Amino acid sequence: MIICCGEALIDMVQVLSDSGQTSYAPLVGGAIFNTAIGLGRLGIEVGIVSGVSNDLFGQQLHDALVVSKVDTSYLVRSNLPTTLAFVSLDAGHASYTFYDENSAGRSFQVTHVPNLFDVQRGIKSCNALYFGGISLINEPAADAYCSIAQKYANDMVIVLDPNIRTNFISNDQTYRQRLQHIIDVADIIKVSNEDLDWLVGGAIPEQQQVHLLRGKNKAIVIVTKGAEGATAYLTAGEVVHQDVPKVCVVDTVGAGDTFSAGLLAKLVSLNLMSKTALANISRTELLESLAYATQVAAVNVSRQGANPPWLSDLKV
C-alpha cells in the first residue's frame, strides 16, 4: 500500500453558466488528494492521511475517495471548514488562491497521526509514503506531516512532490527548512521546473540545480517541464528523458499530481517500490515508469479539472 499524506480540498473552478456568466463549480482536489485518487483508479492499493471536514464539501471529498477505491479509514474528521482553492485559468494554465484559515486540513496535528504499522488497521504492508502540496506550508499540519516522513524514513519509501504555491507561503525560511527535512530522507523527489527554480535558483543548468537540491541524499530526482516532458536524474549521474504525448489540453489542473500517480503505479507494477529496488533501478525501468506517468497525465489534461484516468481509459 501507498499512503498519501496531505491536503484534500475543493477546487472552485470557473465555468460559464447557461446565461453566459462566469460562475464557480466545486470540484474535489488538492495535490495529495489528486494523487491518491489517481493511484486508486490505476488499481493500486492506496490510503490517505488527511484532515477532512464534516461539512458538505468534506462529505464530497470522502465520497470521491471511496468511489476511486482509496482507503478513507485514516481521515481525521472535524467540524472545521473545508479548504477552498479558487482556480484561475490563463490559456489552460492554472493559478490558485487559497482560503485555508482554521480549516480541517490545516488543523491536522501530530497527535492525530495514526500508527502506520498497526496490524489491526490492515496496513502492515504499507511500503511507501507520499508528501507535498500546500499541506507542508502552514502549521500545525505541516509539522505533523514532516514528523511522519522522518518517523518512517528508515522503513518506507518516502516520495516528495512539493508542488510549490508561492502566493500561499507565509514564512519562506520555515517552509524551506521543513522541505529540506523531507528532502534529506526522500527516495524520490519529483519537482516541476518552476519548483526547482524556486528551491535552488534558476540561473544555473538543470543538472546543477538537481545536484544542489539533492545534496548528500541519493534520491531519484524527476523534473517535469510541461509540454517539454520529464527528465529523471539517477544518483550515479545517469539521465533519462521522456517526451509527452500530444493531446488537446483543456487545462493543467492536477496534471503534476496525476503524473506522480502514474509514476508510482508503474513502479509498483514493476516491483520497484522498495528502498533497495529504487537504489538499483535501471534506465530502462525508469524510462518505462516515466512513459506511463506522461501517458496518465496526458489523459488528465485533456479533461476539465483534476480528473485522473481509470485503467480502462488508457490505451493499451
Rank of each mutant, 00 (worst) to 15 (best):
L179P: 04
T294W: 01
H62M: 12
D195I: 10
G254D: 06
L287C: 13
A149D: 13
N300P: 14
D63V: 11
S17K: 15
E238M: 11
L199C: 15
S260P: 14
P308V: 05
I32G: 00
V239P: 10
E194M: 06
G43W: 09
A297Y: 02
G6D: 01
L314I: 06
Q21F: 12
N300E: 07
A236P: 02
L213T: 09
G20E: 01
V185R: 13
S68D: 12
I2Y: 07
A25L: 01
V247P: 00
K216A: 15
L199D: 04
F86V: 05
G226K: 06
G215H: 10
R165F: 00
K218M: 14
N171S: 06
E194W: 11
T72Y: 08
N115K: 14
Y99M: 06
A25G: 00
T258R: 14
N271C: 09
Y175C: 05
V249H: 06
K315C: 03
K275V: 08
L212K: 12
W310T: 06
A94D: 05
M12R: 09
Y175D: 00
L56Q: 15
A144D: 01
S192D: 13
G40K: 09
N193E: 14
G30P: 04
N280T: 09
D187Q: 13
Q60H: 10
A306C: 00
L16E: 15
F98H: 03
S260Q: 11
I189E: 02
E228W: 06
V28I: 05
A298P: 05
K225V: 14
T22D: 06
M12H: 14
V221F: 04
K124N: 11
N271L: 07
H181W: 01
L160H: 15
T72V: 12
P81C: 04
N102W: 05
E101M: 08
L270P: 14
Q21E: 08
S274L: 14
V185H: 07
H112Q: 01
A64C: 02
S147R: 15
G122H: 02
Y74T: 09
A141G: 01
S170P: 07
L213F: 03
S274F: 13
R106E: 03
A261F: 02
